[in-house]
Design a binder for these strands. Structure first.
Length: 532
RNA sequence: GACAGCGUAGCAUAACGGUCAAUGCACCAGCCUCAUAAGCUGGCAGAUGUGGGUUCAACUCCCAUCGCUGUUACCA
């Protein structure tokens, strides 16, 4: 693959979610962000591979399944179905759904393991200590609370284990990792997370155990069947397996030929260490190129409080989409929460923001303008182009380089910023209409001026819809259709052509010579929930 | 405990050390009527956690203090 080739390709991942339970709002958040990022890339005509999936091995899964009287695979299949259905509801367009129980995954894991083994980075050692099954990890004595209960999982005591484990020689890669963080400052983002990782690595890295005994639900260590590969070692490689074409022979060479290295791993901050420390070390050991970027986003709170089962204040993502729709949920998470920082979910704010931005500012803008077009121009779009407007026109001046600014923001995963840029144009449209009062001009028979105003507004709405399409694809579709375009932002073909992007992302491209129909509200106002 | 970060109007955010600290939401008043009782204009409210210091000038730098958060070995 040459450089120019890589410029029009973009591979990104969500985590492979652990199938201990049905998807929660955190997984939905990560996946929405990833989908928006992927859509922004596709919009520019790049080939994109969005990988999501599930991590299905480990003792915790085995036990969860057993508690329900299910075979582990049956349990996993059920959970996977719920993930897929949520992604469908949220209009997530993923390209690969990677399951660590997929038949081709074991071959990749084995081959990778052998590479690392040959490198001399795996060795057998004894591990003793208290093991928390819920964490799938050994705990230091000082970390445990009374009666050897894990501090995170207080309902179950940790188990005493004395076993032989295989270890990965992480300590060997300390210097290499430090050099990586130094030479590639944006490898870990945001910067605050990067500092944490650097801090951690500088304290000295210990080798970590990559196998478990007395565990059936997982892949055996190729060289020693008594041992099962630790879930994380297995799960991270799911990103590699995902790169295989469906009927391709599962070899590392095949998997890595097209899309490697991954451009972006989008993850929650809780699993940053695996992706920013262990993963690059594993890859270095196997002699593979490293991913370009790992972005650890923040967590969601509900009304300012941590969400959790104990507090009983979790948000059910299925319920949220059912009540408000995919675009509403997507918009709130992308616009109101700054990626990287913790963000709060508050239903009143949620409703206020959506009503203000999507129903009032944007939706009603389209509605009022189409209404005028119908009354004043019989629904015919004015025969104008960008050339008819001077560069200091109140809308053209904002719209001219809006595409550039929005794309720039999206490249930095600043979707909130992107939305703000677009909203500035939308709000200016409303102001522009009031300032120029086309209804008065119409009464004065100033038809040309009316048309000039309406065209400028409709075109600004079109551009806004286009640039918002990665965030609210269904609403953008509705706008585009009402503006006379035969267009579907949910279809991949619409993203393939670079020329399409260059055309649509500029101000002044509204198709002329069309008769537009009656306006249909694109977004109904949401009702505030009753006070309780 | 150690290390890191944060603390701006009711809420959410913004401000290369330098115009009256900006924007949105919410709230109040006025205007308009093309529109989803939407829109526009104006108002509201903070002397930027507290106390010092550096500087001609600090939200922006330094010190202290209070409060919150994160990381401290493998939970989105």
């Amino acid at each position: 693959m040459n450089n120019s080739d890589h410029n029009h390709k973009f591979a990104l991942t969500t985590p492979l979610y652990y199938v201990n339970g049905v998807p929660h709002i955190g997984s939905a958040y990560t996946t929405i962000v990833a989908d928006a990022a992927a859509r922004f890339q596709r919009l520019q005509g790049k080939s994109v591979l969005l990988i999501t999936g599930t991590d299905e091995h480990g003792q915790k899964i085995q036990r969860t399944a057993a508690e329900q009287g299910l075979e582990p695979q049956v349990h996993c299949d059920r959970i996977v179905d719920s993930f897929k259905s949520l992604w469908d509801k949220l209009n997530i367009k993923y390209d690969r759904f990677s399951r660590t129980t997929a038949p081709n995954h074991q071959a990749i894991v084995n081959e990778f393991f052998e590479r690392v083994w040959k490198q001399g980075d795996i060795y057998l050692d004894r591990q003793q200590g208290w093991y928390c099954v819920s964490c799938e990890e050994f705990k230091e004595e000082r970390e445990l609370i009374e009666d050897h209960h894990c501090a995170i999982h207080t309902n179950k005591p940790a188990e005493w284990r004395d076993e032989e484990n295989y270890f990965f020689r992480l300590s060997k890669y300390q210097q290499q990792l430090e050099e990586l963080y130094e030479s590639q400052p944006d490898f870990i983002q945001p910067a605050s997370r990067r500092n944490e990782v650097i801090n951690f690595v500088q304290q000295g890295l210990k080798d970590f155990s990559i196998s478990r005994v007395n565990l059936d639900w997982g892949f055996p260590i190729p060289t020693d069947e008594k041992h099962t590969i630790y879930v994380w070692f297995d799960a991270l490689l799911g990103y590699v397996t995902a790169l295989l074409e469906p009927d391709q022979k599962p070899t590392l060479d095949n998997a890595l030929s097209q899309w490697w290295p991954i451009d972006l791993h989008l993850i929650g901050k809780d699993i940053l260490r695996f992706h920013a420390v262990y993963w690059p070390a594993m890859l270095a050991s196997a002699g593979l190129p490293l991913p370009k970027k790992v972005f650890g986003h923040g967590f969601l709170t509900k009304d300012g409080l941590k969400m959790g089962k104990t507090l009983g204040n979790t948000i059910d993502p299925f319920d949220l989409v059912d009540r408000y729709g995919a675009d509403a949920v997507r918009y709130y998470f992308l616009k109101e929460i700054e990626l990287g920082k913790d963000g709060d979910f508050n239903e009143t704010r949620f409703i206020n923001v959506l009503n203000a931005d999507l129903a009032n500012d944007l939706g009603n803008l389209l509605n009022r303008t189409l209404g005028m077009l119908k009354k004043y121009c019989q629904g015919n779009t004015p025969q104008l182009t960008s050339e008819n407007y001077s560069s200091d026109h109140p809308l053209k001046s904002i719209g001219m380089d809006l595409g550039d600014r929005v794309i720039q923001a999206s490249e930095n995963l600043q979707f909130s910023q992107a939305c703000e840029e677009i909203l500035t144009l939308v709000r200016s449209c409303n102001k522009y209409i009031d300032d120029s009062a086309p209804w008065s001009l119409f009464k004065q028979d100033k038809q040309a001026e009316v048309e000039e105003i309406l065209y400028a507004v409709l075109e600004s709405v079109r551009l806004s819809a286009y640039l918002l399409s990665p965030i609210i694809p269904d609403l953008s579709n509705k706008i585009y259709q009402q503006l006379g375009f035969d267009w579907d932002f949910n279809q991949d073909e619409r993203y393939k052509a670079r020329e399409d992007f260059l055309w649509h992302s500029k101000w002044g491209k509204l198709s002329t010579n069309k008769t537009l129909g009656k306006a249909i509200p694109i977004f109904s106002k949401l009702e505030l929930p009753p006070e309780d």
